[in-house]
């Protein structure tokens, strides 16, 4: 925030704490993205709740959003995406931020290509984002966003070695098309994965028991990998599934995974031009006790 510090001395900014953390001699985390487009788009896609947790480790940055313990979404940006990346080895940095503020700040140059530098000094310090636009205007925007101490997000995991672990990989745009066609006003949605016919079936159940069904055969072009050992079928709330729609539109490939517990894991690879990839992961809890 070196440009903004000057303004503090002129009395235009009052909150010194947001501008500097002189008590820390070293910056804990610095990373630079050359183009924020992918990161910004993904973050917007999972911004269904106000607060997000940043988890920064040796391998990349993960931003986690939860919806009252039913749905967890996270954006994972690998280290390779960044042109510059420094974190202390073997340490995971975690903090909470208001994600609305972050997306608002990232959108300041809306649409125009710009680079971003993230700086975080340590617990209690703000997350500093320095956005720089390379073009006709010589402009730098410095955002300093308040962070809070983290509350550990839930750790969802699927039993990958279990007998009923099923996983299929489907092309993102095709799955998005399917979701466009099904009845979105329905209350519940059922995913069925099976090694026999109908292989992969999505059923929606509406308020007055109206149903729509979409079946995708194992041999379909849109399925690239099909690994099913046992038939699993589980219902989810449509309002929970809907939270993933925005992200689905950005994805190039989606892995749909489930196990005997019924927990639905969606892993999305975000379309991008270069090698470096951004992933979005959703965990959606099933509805229990239905006949």
């Amino acid at each position: 925030m070196h440009n903004s510090k000057i303004l503090y001395h002129k009395g235009l900014l009052r909150n010194w704490k947001m501008l500097t953390q002189s008590q820390y001699s070293q910056i804990k985390f610095v990373a630079k993205l050359e183009n924020i487009k992918g990161f910004f788009g993904s973050l917007k896609a999972i911004n269904f709740d106000e607060t997000g947790t940043f988890q920064i480790s040796d391998s990349g940055v993960r931003v986690i959003v939860e919806n009252s313990k039913f749905v967890q979404a996270s954006v994972y940006v690998t280290k390779e995406c960044f042109s510059e990346y420094h974190v202390p080895p073997d340490e995971t940095i975690q903090f909470y931020v208001n994600l609305n503020v972050v997306t608002e700040c990232l959108g300041i140059f809306s649409g125009v290509e710009c680079s971003m530098k993230m700086i975080y000094k340590g617990a209690g310090c703000p997350l500093v984002l320095v956005l720089e636009h390379h073009g006709e205007d010589d402009v730098v925007t410095e955002c300093s966003i308040k962070t809070k101490n983290h509350e550990e997000p839930l750790d969802y995991s699927l039993d990958e070695d279990g007998p009923s672990y099923n996983a299929i990989i489907i092309r993102g745009p095709d799955l998005a098309n399917i979701f466009n066609e099904i009845d979105r006003t329905a209350e519940e949605l059922e995913f069925l994965l099976s090694p026999k016919e109908p292989f992969f079936r999505i059923t929606t159940i509406g308020v007055i028991q109206s149903e729509t069904q979409v079946e995708v055969a194992k041999t379909s072009d849109m399925i690239t990998t099909f690994r099913c050992k046992e038939t699993t079928s589980m219902r989810y709330k449509m309002s929970h599934i809907k939270l993933a729609f925005k992200a689905l539109l950005l994805s190039s490939k989606v892995a749909i995974r489930t196990d005997s517990s019924g927990l639905l894991g969606l892993q999305l690879i975000i379309q991008s031009d270069d090698e470096a990839q951004i992933y979005i992961e959703f965990f959606i809890t099933p509805l229990v006790n239905y006949d």
């Binding site: 925030m1 208001n98 700040c105 730098v140 308040k146």
Partner: peptide, 23 residues
């Protein structure tokens, strides 16, 4: 904020965030 060196800063400060754009 502007000065005679041709610098313009647009600054907002809230309890959640401080945002400053410098031209």
């Amino acid at each position: 904020y502007a000065n005679t060196n041709g610098e313009l800063s647009i600054v907002a400060e809230t309890d959640q965030a401080t945002v400053a754009s410098h031209y």
